Simulated scan of single mutants.
Amino acid sequence: MTKMYKILPLALLISGVVHAATDNPWYAGARIGGTNFDSFGGALDGAESSFERDDWGGGAFIGYTYNSWFGVEGGYTYLGQADANTGGGGFEVHGLDLVGKFTWHAAPSFDLFGKLGGYVFDVDNSVNNQDDNGVSATAGIGAEYFFNDDLSARAEYQYYNQVGGSSPGESDVHFYGVSLVYYWGAPEPVAIIEPEPVPEPAPVPVQPEVMKVKALSVNLPFAFDSNALSQSDIDRIQPIAQRLVEYPETKLYVVGHTDSRGSEEYNQKLSEERAAVVAGYLGAHFGINKSRIVAQGKGESEPLASNDTEEGRAKNRRVEVYTPGFEITK
């Protein structure tokens, strides 16, 4: 069992990062289910047959998700009471959980997760009138289904190791139950300006001198799962930046793309972020008005090469930056 808890967080990390079922980082919930007491020790050593070891438990919790695979969670959990078979009273446990939550997004609306952390317990053994408090280790696994971005349900199992002390006694406690969870706190989505159709050039009278200015375009490569501009990218778009400054009536078109790894929803969002980063840099550093910039993401829908090879995927992770050609009459 101990080896499984050590391997679980690493396995979830290596399994890969995909789009989360919800972008809300904060959540709170309540859980209820059954509990079981076993492996008695201390004052309870060998007394398993003297207690009814099954009861109910539950609690409430709040958590924060730091990224797509890790978050922290804390809350109150009541683990029930192992009632004495003769006389009154029993061995009752409640306390506070603080755990790390490791998540694998198995499907767009379905997660698998593991927990690892500590349990600050308070134990009351009314059979021998002894109390104790302290910290024990806890770990668990479960599955979570998202009804929408704000609401989910969980089924989970959690193990609490040797809760109690030598005087009141101690016991392993197993909790199994269901939870209802509410999520909130996602930032408002960034609006993406849909591109306008490139207008057909209007006919112009024949003039003695007409200067044709050619269209400029460049493809900027991006690293896997990145929306960061490199210095070489900035150098490559300088001619386009100078064109926009020199001709204030020209427009800028920025289209982001990704390779096929990851879900379509995640890739669409990443392509929009890449386009927004390039458009934002040109607008901020060269004073280009937002009305002159059209930015959009195409996700994985328009590859330049096959996504079956690393070389092909590298070509597909790109942002196309384009200014149309035009004519100037002198």
Results as ranks from 00 to 15, higher is better:
3 K>G: 12
6 K>S: 12
7 I>E: 14
10 L>G: 07
12 L>N: 10
17 V>G: 05
20 A>E: 12
23 D>C: 02
32 I>H: 02
34 G>M: 09
39 S>I: 08
40 F>K: 00
43 A>H: 07
59 G>E: 01
60 A>K: 13
73 E>Q: 10
77 T>G: 01
81 Q>R: 12
85 N>P: 03
86 T>E: 11
87 G>F: 02
89 G>S: 04
89 G>L: 04
93 V>L: 03
93 V>Q: 08
95 G>Y: 00
96 L>H: 10
106 A>P: 04
113 F>K: 00
118 G>F: 11
121 F>C: 01
121 F>P: 02
124 D>L: 07
132 D>F: 06
137 A>L: 08
138 T>Q: 06
139 A>W: 08
143 A>D: 03
146 F>T: 06
152 S>A: 12
161 N>H: 12
167 S>K: 09
173 V>S: 01
173 V>A: 03
181 V>C: 01
183 Y>N: 08
185 G>M: 05
185 G>K: 05
187 P>W: 03
192 I>M: 09
193 I>T: 15
201 P>Q: 07
203 P>D: 02
205 P>W: 15
206 V>I: 13
208 P>W: 12
213 V>T: 09
214 K>S: 12
218 V>R: 04
218 V>M: 11
218 V>P: 02
221 P>R: 09
226 S>H: 12
227 N>L: 02
227 N>D: 10
228 A>N: 14
231 Q>N: 15
232 S>W: 05
263 S>D: 06
264 E>A: 15
265 E>L: 11
271 S>H: 00
277 V>M: 14
280 G>A: 04
282 L>F: 07
284 A>S: 15
285 H>Q: 15
288 I>V: 13
290 K>H: 12
291 S>E: 15
297 G>W: 07
300 E>A: 13
301 S>L: 11
301 S>V: 12
311 E>L: 14
313 R>M: 05
313 R>E: 06
